[in-house]
Design a protein around this nucleic acid. Structure first.
Ligand code: MN
Ligand code: MN
Ligand code: MN
Ligand code: MN
Lengths: 261, 261
DNA sequence: AAACAATGTAAGCCTCGCCTAACTTCCTGT
DNA sequence: ACAGGAAGTTAGGCGAGGCTTACATTGTTT
């Protein structure tokens, strides 16, 4: 039980996979882990031994794998780093989902706590401040999508040429107002665009009436961001942050909400 | 000469150090590299062999080290990744210089080209769009500095409680308008706050009258961002992007510039 | 109980990245 | 011109990591 030992990137990934499997099926099986990480079974056994040695998983030969409390914390931390980065990449940098996810899973292993914290605050600020930011991020997204593909976007550049900023009001593009449910500020309304949860959790969400297309309103967020309370189809629901994080939404009329006196 | 072989993090760091030494002293010496990376001389020799094998450096036993054209490109790429991340961390996330630099040097090795490109566009957008963004980033910086230290900033939270966004007009803090010289848009004015260049280059800049406190105006930027032309103390200067990147500046009255018709 | 799937063990392979110890080469002062 | 020290090289080794194959064990199903 070598304490406080820092995990290698590889072991963090194993832990992450186990976390997801446990969340979905209660327990993790060697062959499932092997399949997800794309290695042979025996490699998994080795990794499991390491993780057990460090007190992160419950593991006895031929038995299924579960996380210890310590392991659960550590795994949740990895997952957190992963999703903060992924969300920043998709929501702010307008990177496509797959690329964002792969990049996040590489960078999650070398991001420092301070920087991570700032990323979180960044997202939080964006999502709590529609008046200042919605238009701004939208403009950024517009710029990214265009300048990349065309090499340069005449309209943008023309606008930039003037001393003033581009208006970015030409809404022929999907505006960049998608985010994750748990990032909404109380009072904000949004439409669900995609459920990212898998298996078990996905089913539960559907049963609660949470499915793409539904309108939703954030009501309250507990001090630590978990749990959160939302309104959907007239009735109230409480979700865990983890669940809400997997729900992609698109802001509805943020300007209207912000222009109240 | 194993081609297209991807470099390990470690080798990228060696290359980066060599790049800086060459920039400063024309050539790199084993003992200097060893000192900077904090390893023994013999470890450096090993790394140099690898780099030479990959065609990135000119290296013969007992001779000094220089970069091949290919090596120069690769090194410049590493340095680019490093500085894009560092600048984002300091200028946008308001992370302190040392932490930002260390974090950047860890993450530079696992950032993908697409994401990097977006980070660049992000910075560029910020720096070309003072009307939309200056106030916004300023608010973010404010929020970061405070919420972190105090756990929560009453003023911010109070402001956030209202439906509107925090005004962030209480300017008791240094506003977040610092950036790097090469990121200025034509026409923007700024004051030099810090020179980050070392040795030789530092001297050259000083000789040109570029020193902390001077007022500067960006005049033109060549198509690829290099070179750039600035005005300082009434006369015109052309700088390489690399030089300009090491010059930290603080925007002067961006609002005034943006409020022209 | 036999067959079959899942899992575990042992052994080995390879890459890294660093070290020590002993050496060669280079440079510089006398 | 050459001694002596600084700088650099070489060889050898170590330990961690991460993966594989081949074979052994266990558990489950029929
Ligand atoms: Mn990962
Ligand atoms: Mn991940
Ligand atoms: Mn580095
Ligand atoms: Mn670096």
């Amino acid at each position: 039980m070598s304490d406080t030992a820092d995990l290698s990137s590889s072991l963090e990934d194993y832990l992450e996979v186990i976390f997801h499997l446990v969340a979905e099926k209660q327990v993790a099986r060697v062959k499932d882990i092997a399949k997800l990480i794309n290695v042979k079974n025996s490699s998994v056994t080795g990794a499991l031994r390491s993780l057990a040695e460090k007190g992160l998983i419950h593991y006895a030969p031929y038995d299924v794998v579960t996380l210890t409390p310590k392991g659960k914390d550590t795994a949740a931390d990895v997952v957190h780093r992963h999703s903060v980065l992924r969300d920043f990449f998709t929501h702010v940098l307008a990177v496509d989902a797959e690329e964002a996810d792969k990049a996040a899973c590489r960078m999650e292993h070398c991001i420092s706590p301070v920087i991570l914290e700032r990323f979180v605050q960044f997202s939080s600020y964006i999502n709590h401040c529609p008046r200042n930011s919605a238009q701004w991020v939208q403009g950024l997204g517009f710029r990214c999508r265009h300048e990349l593909s065309a090499g340069s976007c005449e309209k943008c550049l023309a606008a930039l040429g003037t001393e003033a900023c581009p208006p970015f009001s030409h809404s022929e593009d999907t505006p960049m107002t998608t985010t994750s449910l748990h990032l909404l500020a109380p009072g904000q309304k949004a439409k669900i665009t995609k459920i990212r949860a898998q298996g078990e959790m996905n089913k539960r969400l559907l049963e609660m009436g949470i499915l793409p297309g539904s309108l939703i309103e954030m009501e309250r967020v507990a001090p630590l961001g978990d749990p959160i309370q939302i309104k959907i189809k007239g009735y109230h629901l409480t979700l865990r942050k983890e669940e809400a994080g997997g729900i992609e939404v698109e802001l509805v009329a943020p300007q209207a909400a912000a222009s109240k006196p």
